[in-house]
Amino acid sequence: MSKHTVTMTVNGTKYTREIESRLLLVHFIREDLELTGTHIGCDTTNCGACTVLMDGFTVKSCTVFAMTANGKSIETIEGVAQNGALHPLQEGFWEKHGLQCGYCTPGMIMSAKHLLSNNPNPTEDEIRWGLSGNLCRCTGYNKIVEAVQYAAEKMSAEQEQDA
């Protein structure tokens, strides 16, 4: 069994751990760092419950070896709220009832975050395509779309205010 040292920054904190080479990033996050907000829903990259940001891009952390994330910066759902204040996306999902069982929600929010960083004012179609790597079995997606629209509007307004 090959063991390696891995170092990565997760939600702003740098972690160094000894790990087995085959350890999946999702298990590193969930088991080694005990950040259990990132979930596992399939084995084939279909469901997206394990979606996290790696250097700003969404990845399915069940299909990335932790070693590949060596030296990289990871953001999980636990890092989305800042200083105790919910992110506009979290607010949007709450306001618009964009979640039910909550299991897909962390991955969905990470995908939405990446989408809005590339496209701050997406159309409904762009939101649907942008989230098409994440499955939700409860909501029927209508209210997830509304949640992302809510966040886009709020973030745009905040940006205008800052400017």
């Binding site: 907000g37 990132t38 919910l86 979290q90 999902f93 709450w94 979640l99 909550g102 929600t105 929010i109």
Partner: peptide, 12 residues
């Protein structure tokens, strides 16, 4: 129930 789910604090 939403605040815990939104912040990855659900307990599955």
């Amino acid at each position: 129930e939403d605040p815990r789910f939104l912040q990855g604090k659900g307990n599955y």
